[in-house]
Design a protein around this nucleic acid. Structure first.
Lengths: 343, 343
DNA sequence: AGAACAAATGTCAGCGCTGTCAACTGGCGC
DNA sequence: GCGCCAGTTGACAGCGCTGACATTTGTTCT
């Protein structure tokens, strides 16, 4: 084990490359106006000294932070995927990702956000749903003038980009699948209010039903909060309806799993007597039998795009270029064993 | 919307409180030697100006970073829980958590780690298994003299604390439960090598079997990598054994779920013909029917303790106080429907 | 009251880097 | 040969804060 060297400084690199620190700085920041030969010499020195610029110093001098914040309400598989994608994208641009859970129920959110943002001088923020629609968070971020990207917001923010997916189309397609399997009475599990996914997925379902002139029995539409326990409760109500549906389309996989679970307890055979479809392609979707037909979101891709929007934006620092980008990604239907012909 | 103020500086606070910046600094850092009356005046000024110290400046001047790194290999529910706990603890001490996925298969890990550590000047690092045993990561961290806490390492690092759980005892207890339900032929699904959990859980299982003078049929012991698909493969081998076991104890819930899934496909009734036990109390454990008997890890608690170890250690900066702390937490058995009397 | 000391506060330089702007270099046209 | 300009490079201050040390203030004891 070698004795621990102190980290190299820009001055040391400059000395070794026979240039001024400023020129080294230019190279580090990929600024133009450095002769190739000089650049090469400097890069060499950097390599030899194994130099890493000190982020604190860079940030202080340049009024930057190299930090992007990722705010989320509840952890879960979605977060994992998203985080992975976002970190990857950040690393490609020499940025770092700061994760921050924010209890949507807490009254101290504004304080928390403001604190983080101003202490860390975040260069951008990404809001995961349902935070993307939280007025307090939005306001705190706006006040601090932090460029923000909203993921799947219900109301598109006028002055910030958002990224979302065509949940409506996917839900419509999935419903069409159910219809083509002969299902006519179809139960639906809504997500909690305040999520774009909740409204879009239902709309897609309704689109498909109405296109076939089928009516939706309100008794078969139940609201859960995207979690297993309420999925159970929804399923109880749907399967306890006067006339039991032959299929259930749940707004997410956890609730779909709950439907499958309850059906099993009730001795209902899957998919013989009941078909079930979910949404999100969560791990649980392929961990139960029969596996859940579901819709896959390109979460990592969404994350990369979100991070990218912030990174691309950075140079301007204030106000997004016209027009504000709002990429919308397509989803992928995944048909699996939980959907079969209607009995 | 008010015009966006520039963030307050320590100088502004000092002026308003009629003291020198240094005294304000003392208050911010909770240093002793400030009269109560002065402190109050300063705190007042801070509040009025809504002042937040600039982390970059603090870090640069004080040779700190206020950052702790959390390194992990694969995301998952464990990570979510851990991250939540760790962030909470960090916030309590004015620190921040930097998450960093590290592909255990990648050859650039040393570079990645070194880069992060030196750019960010991390004040500490937490290694999640199986990274806690990765020699390259350990070396990179050691070279940079970053205080590190290892979570559930197979080999305890001589000079760093570790946090783990008594998996062996818990596995023994779970096995005893199976035995008391009358099971004698019990299959076991090992985790991948390189995890403490893998060895400890098996040892606990073996402890209990041997205590009853029962032998373990090697054909019923299969290795997976903690993921559902191999769980399926393991289950296929175990359930395809010449003499099928009446119970399976899987080293984690994903694999246990796979056993349940396969059993169902094979028409084996749970828990009537086969009992299944898992480990970790992952979400999936309560999302399938019958729900999995499992072992709950206090993941958040572990995370808090790990962060705490780093935070407590910080003042010394080099070398841990004697002796190196190695807290070990107890686990909680959760018996659920997947375990029943042997047929 | 004055000395002697502890407590409280201040002064000042500098952490490692970048923004601003000045200075230098070489090539070109006339 | 001179002026001029674009292309390069450097000098220098200062980002906001804290460490080391100096100074002032308050307290206690004789």
């Amino acid at each position: 084990m070698s004795a621990r060297r102190e980290p190299a400084t820009i001055q040391m690199v400059a000395d070794r490359a026979q240039v001024s620190p400023k020129t080294v700085s230019r190279v580090i920041n990929s600024e133009p106006g450095v002769r190739d030969e000089t650049r090469a010499r400097i890069l060499d020195a950097i390599r030899q000294l194994d130099y890493q610029p000190n982020l604190n110093a860079r940030g202080l001098a340049g009024a930057r932070s190299f930090l992007i914040g990722l705010f989320y309400d509840k952890p879960g598989d979605y977060l994992n995927e998203f985080q992975t994608g976002a970190v990857q994208r950040c690393r490609e641009s020499d940025l770092h990702l700061m994760v921050q859970p924010l209890d949507i129920a807490s009254k101290e959110m504004a304080r928390d956000v403001g604190m983080l943002v101003r202490q860390l001088r975040l260069e951008g923020a990404i809001l995961l749903p349902p935070l993307s629609d939280h007025p307090v968070v939005r306001a705190a971020l706006a006040e601090a003038a932090v460029p923000t990207v909203h993921i799947a917001p219900v109301r598109e923010p006028v002055d910030s980009p958002s990224v979302d997916t065509d949940d409506r189309a996917a839900a419509r397609q999935m419903t069409v699948q159910l219809l083509e399997h002969g299902h006519r009475r179809i139960g639906f599990m809504l997500g909690p209010p305040g999520h774009r996914a909740t409204e879009q997925r239902y709309l897609g379902f309704a689109d498909a039903m109405h296109a076939r002139a089928l009516s939706i029995d309100p008794e078969l539409v139940q609201t859960g909060n995207f979690e297993f326990p309420d999925g159970l409760e929804c399923a109880r109500r749907i399967l306890g309806a006067r006339s039991r549906p032959t299929a259930i389309f749940a707004s997410n996989d956890d609730m779909a799993a709950a439907a499958a679970c309850l059906a099993r307890q009730m001795g209902i055979e899957l998919p013989g007597e009941l078909s079930i479809a979910g949404f999100d392609d969560a791990p649980v979707a392929s961990m139960i039998w029969p596996q859940l037909a579901t819709v896959r979101q390109p979460v990592r891709e969404i994350a990369r795009i979100a991070a990218d929007l912030i990174i691309q934006h950075r140079p301007h620092r204030r106000g997004w270029p016209q027009p504000i980008p709002r990429p919308r990604l397509d989803l992928e239907l995944i048909m699996r064993g939980s959907v079969g012909p209607a009995p």
